[in-house]
Write a protein that binds this DNA or RNA. Sequence first.
DNA 1: GTGTAGACTGCTGTCGACT
DNA 2: TAGTCGACAGCAGTCTACA
Lengths: 81, 81
Amino acid sequence: MGKYKDTSPGKAFGIVLRELRKKAEFTQENLAFEAGIERNYVSLIELGRNQPTISVIFKLAKALNIEPSKMIKLTEAKTSK
Amino acid sequence: MGKYKDTSPGKAFGIVLRELRKKAEFTQENLAFEAGIERNYVSLIELGRNQPTISVIFKLAKALNIEPSKMIKLTEAKTSK
DNA sequence: GTGTAGACTGCTGTCGACT
DNA sequence: TAGTCGACAGCAGTCTACA
């Protein structure tokens, strides 16, 4: 407890998602199509406005051809530091 | 064709959560208290009825003293993607 | 100690359209 | 190409309570 500069998991995940999407050279529209979700929803997640559920996380990971746990691992790195 | 990996991420996560909770010798009530969520909600997650959001996953992982990515890794092993 | 149920609040996620 | 807006359905998550 006490004070920490707390980047919420949701926001951190959004940053990770954007980085991975750019690296994969996807547009939000392409990623949304591959993951089977809405394009503007990808935007909301990347901006950290929406906290995705576990099923959405798995969909995104599959679309990006990466393990879900790898995405979470990257997210941890942004939340703790 | 694997053994029996035909589970949705939500259900798989529930199974993993229960296994980890038992291993840590927590009751649902203890875990809920540590994670700062409702006791019956732990039950719903374990049963695969509710899909937790990423923030809840992080709360549970912290309460169990395990990395969130580790929980997801275990979940992958029980999921058919 | 856990599952479930109802009632409730608020957010996830969709959809079309405009910036 | 990405952000946002409003309207909307559905579900995440709370709370109390009972088997």
